[in-house]
Amino acid sequence: MKLVEKIKKNRLLSVVIVVYLLLFITIPDKAIVAISNSIYYVLEMIMIMPVIFILTSLTEAWVPKEVIINSFGEKSGFKGNVFAFLLGSFSAGPIYAAFPVCKMLMEKGASIANIAIVLSAWAVIKVPMLANEAKFLGTRFMAIRWVLTTISIIIMAYLISKFVNKEDIPEVEGRIKEGISINKDYCIGCGMCAKICPNVFYMEDKKAKARSEALTGLVADKINEAIQACPAKAIS
């Protein structure tokens, strides 16, 4: 039973292992090449990811939450789109290095649309890549491709923000199930959360408080609504 549970929790890894086993049985030469390439990328990740985690941790500790909200949050508007685009364009490293950065930004209040822009720009519009593209394919090709790609990124980010909510993301959903945290330093005492979900939130000394409740069903939906409505983004 424990083995089955581990397989369910690591479905992608299980599929990869099965594929490698099938390759070794049917095409051993290709399997050896595949293993060699995988080892190369794993070693690359081992060298890059510790640096990314350190930088992400330092940013999370030193950059105030309100700065992230103002720069990348739901109400940052076009300014937030530009900042997200620039962050993705001037970042270094492979695309998988962007995921811990984007996770940190989202936890501190960045919007879904701006996260999509960061990831997309990081993947296809990095400045060093543009320089090489202009060198080998020509400036005109690079410029037209850049304009069309940028338009596509903005459209895609808008669509993703319409179809994906933060509560749909497993990490966010998991935190809601574990419990509610209210940052007293960020709370401005507006009482919005208590109005939306009075079963869980209440006001005390002009600050929001949370009761210990089973965070399921309709209550969980109301909690998500309160989290999104909080102007100070003090609830997590």
Rank of each mutant, 00 (worst) to 15 (best):
A194K: 08
M104P: 00
G174V: 05
A220L: 00
E173C: 04
S57T: 15
V164P: 00
I180R: 02
S89E: 01
A194W: 04
K79W: 07
V200S: 01
R211P: 03
S152E: 08
F163Q: 08
D168W: 03
S14M: 01
Y20R: 02
S71T: 13
N81L: 09
F78A: 01
W146K: 07
S38Y: 09
A134N: 07
P28W: 12
D185R: 14
G73M: 05
S111N: 10
K222N: 10
F53Q: 02
A143M: 14
I155L: 07
N114C: 02
V219Y: 01
P64W: 13
I17A: 13
K207Q: 09
I151S: 03
A220C: 01
S161K: 06
I151C: 05
L119G: 00
K184V: 13
S161P: 06
V15N: 08
A121F: 02
I117F: 01
C102W: 01
V33T: 12
P94G: 06
I154G: 10
I144W: 13
S14G: 03
V15M: 10
F78R: 04
A92F: 15
R145E: 15
C230H: 08
T149F: 07
F90R: 06
M142F: 12
A31Y: 05
V200C: 02
I39Y: 12
K233L: 09
Y158A: 04
N81A: 14
I35D: 04
I227S: 05
Y20K: 02
T59W: 14
K8Y: 06
E44M: 12
M106H: 09
K222P: 03
G217I: 03
M203H: 03
I153M: 05
Y202D: 01
A121L: 01
E74F: 07
S212M: 12
K6M: 14
I151M: 09
V164H: 00
A34W: 03
P100M: 02
W62Q: 15
I151F: 10
N70F: 12
A61P: 11
V172G: 02
L13G: 05
K79E: 05
G138Y: 06
V101R: 07
K177H: 03
A208D: 00
I17W: 10
I169P: 03
A134V: 08
I227M: 09
K207P: 06
D205W: 12
V33W: 06
C230Y: 07
A157Y: 03
V15D: 07
K207W: 06
L105G: 04
A157C: 05
R11W: 13
M1V: 10
E178G: 10
T26R: 10
K206T: 10
A226S: 11
A121W: 02
L148V: 11
G191R: 00
E74W: 05
